[in-house]
Amino acid sequence: MLGLLDSHYNYVAVMLLLGIGLYMLVESRNLVKKVIGMNVFQTGIFLFFITLAFRAGGNPPIIEDGGGPYVSPLPHVLILTAIVVGVSLTAVALALLIRIYTEYGTLDEDKLKQLYYD
């Protein structure tokens, strides 16, 4: 168990982030916190990709410097895209939250449910 922590601590961190994010997403009654949870969840995935690329003793993948071994550049590129997607999602979510708040005057999920089904 401790060995796992030592050698694969990055995956442990990923799992923690995913778990925390999902928990907030499901359990939090406040919609803003839900959106934050969503962000944490996504960050866990980003971290997973980034650490995939890691290679002990690897150089940055710029060919002129010294030479291999390099860390994989691909996940970095992917995550750059994914972060952009994540930011846009957050922006849309926040815009929706503002609209919900102006319409209903609350961001509490339970109260909203009552208003919603009336």
Binding site: L25, L31, M38, V92, L96, L97, I100, E103, Y104
Partner: peptide
């Protein structure tokens, strides 16, 4: 309608997951 924003947020959260 206000409801559409709530529905959209629900869609957004589940869809993003």
């Amino acid at each position: 309608e206000a409801k559409s924003a709530v529905a959209a947020l629900k869609y957004l959260i589940i869809g993003t997951v």
